[in-house]
Design a protein around this nucleic acid. Structure first.
Lengths: 147, 147
DNA sequence: AAGGGTGGTTGCAATATAAAACCTAGTTCG
DNA sequence: CGAACTAGGTTTTATATTGCAACCACCCTT
C-alpha cells in the first residue's frame, strides 16, 4: 500500500494506525460514511476520485476491519460498505480534524459546514483533553510513557 | 505537494486540512515535535525517513503555518522548527489518533506507550464529543449543516 | 432480450516517493 | 589557523503510486 516499510512494528500507537488510514483519501471516505454513504457509487460521486483508487482504498479499509462488505440492506443484490465499531471509533478523530479545520482554514466570508447536535441544532462542544481528575490538559502537561 | 487538485476549494473543513497534514509523515513529524524534537537531525533520527522527504515535509509544514523556522534557542548558528499555535492546535487530533491506535492496534503482550498526565502520572481521559449542554454525542446524534 | 446503471478491473502516462551520493556552512579540536 | 567532523540540506536516479480512460460483467428494468 505504502512504499516505506510499514509501521506495523512501530510501538507507538500514533504510528501504527497510519497503515490503515494514513493516506489522503481514506479519511474522506470514512467521513462520507459517517454522513450516510454506503455504496461504491455514492462514495465515488461525493468524493470525485478515480474508481480504481476508490476500489483500492475500500479494499484496504475492509482488510483493516474498518468497513465490512455486506449485502445491501434495501434488498437489492448489490453490496454496501458499512462501518465497523473500529471504524466508528474514528469519530473523535474526524471531529478533531474538523474543528481544527474550522479554526484555521475558514474564509471569513464563505459560510462553512458546521457540526451540530441533531437534537438541539446547536454546534457541538469543542474536543478537549482532560486528566483523570478532570483538569484541562495542554500538550506540555502530558508525557508518553512505557514505550 | 499532492497530485490531485487540492481541496482548497472544498468547503468541508475536514477536507481542507488534508492539504497540510494529509500525508503519511507530517503527522508523525508533528507528534515528534510535541515530544520535544526541534532540529532537522532529531526528526530524521527519530523517524528514520529520507532527508529529502523530511526537508520537503518541513517546508510544506512551514508554508502552512504549522511550524516556524527560528534561530536555535541554545545559541548555536543552526535553526530549529517550532510549532505555531496552529500546529499546537493539532494536539487533540493526535490524541484522538493515539487513543484509537491504543484501542485497536495494541498487541496484548507487548506493552505500549501511553499518554499520561505529567502531574499525577495517570493516563489521561478519553476524548469524547459532547453537546452544548453536556450530553455525550454519538456519530448519529450529529449532523453537518450549512455546507 | 436490450439497454442502462452499478461495481468494479486493466492498461498506460504522469507524478510523487525513497535511497544514496553529493555539497556547503558551522563547529570542534590540536 | 587549518583539518576533520557535524548539521542541514540539494541533486540525482530508480521505483512505486496516482489518475484517467477504456473496458467488462453483472444486475435490473422494460
Amino acid at each position: 500500500m505504502v512504499k516505506r516499510t510499514s509501521h506495523k512494528d512501530d510501538p507507538c500507537p500514533v504510528a501504527r494506525p497510519l497503515d490503515a488510514i494514513g493516506d489522503w483519501w481514506s479519511l474522506l471516505i470514512i467521513r462520507d460514511a459517517f454522513e450516510g454513504s454506503r455504496r461504491f457509487g455514492e462514495f465515488q460521486k461525493n468524493l470525485g476520485l478515480a474508481k480504481n483508487i476508490l476500489a483500492t482504498r475500500l479494499r484496504n479499509l475492509v482488510a483493516h476491519g474498518i468497513f465490512t462488505l455486506e449485502p445491501c440492506a434495501d434488498g437489492s443484490a448489490y453490496n454496501e460498505y458499512v462501518l465497523t465499531d473500529k471504524g466508528r471509533g474514528l469519530f473523535p478523530l474526524l471531529v478533531a480534524l474538523r474543528q481544527w479545520g474550522e479554526d484555521y482554514f475558514s474564509d471569513a466570508y464563505e459560510p462553512r459546514a458546521r457540526l451540530v447536535d441533531r437534537q438541539t441544532g446547536k454546534p457541538v462542544r469543542r474536543l478537549e483533553l482532560r486528566s483523570d481528575d478532570g483538569r484541562l490538559l495542554k500538550p506540555e502537561d502530558t508525557v508518553v510513557v512505557g514505550h
